[in-house]
Design a binder for these strands. Structure first.
Lengths: 69, 69
DNA sequence: TTGACATGTAAAGCATGTTTGACGTAAAGC
DNA sequence: GCTTTACGTCAAACATGCTTTACATGTCAA
């Protein structure tokens, strides 16, 4: 599932480590999600959405939808 | 994480089996999510939201938010 | 009162998400 | 050159999500 995490992080000039700390997960988890190696759990997706003040759907792109924003 | 799956299903008079088939998961998965034994994966959450024509946030209640709709 | 259906749950196994610790590489500053 | 920081990745271990099979209960209609 594609996501805009890298862009949102870059807009804030945060390192993966910075983001990981704010989300209370490991840096490797942030990296794996950004590089598309796996999707976050739903609770983590909510935490990410909260942190950026966006809806989950504005960060994670529904693979079933054609409109890729 | 609380969710409104049971209500949405009841509004359509679907059995757990009906819903499971539409989501292409097992009836036990639907039951486990409804009874709160575990949260769906993010991809499954998207599929559920699609099926009901709602946002993920309208079905799954963010545990970090006080406003429980 | 039997049969069919809906729901809850359990165990075992496989798939996915997350952790820690470690290593390689590249860029930037001193 | 050396050090530091950022990023990508790997392996092992553990946690969670999901499957199949199975069993128990309640309800409802015939």
């Amino acid at each position: 599932m594609n996501n805009r995490l890298r862009v949102l992080r870059a807009e804030r000039a945060w390192s993966q480590q910075d983001l990981a700390e704010r989300l209370e997960v490991s840096r490797q988890s942030v990296n794996a999600i950004e590089t598309g190696r796996y999707d976050p759990s739903l609770p983590l997706a909510f935490k990410i959405a909260d942190l950026f003040g966006l809806a989950i759907e504005e960060i994670f792109l529904n693979p079933a939808k054609e409109t890729d924003q």
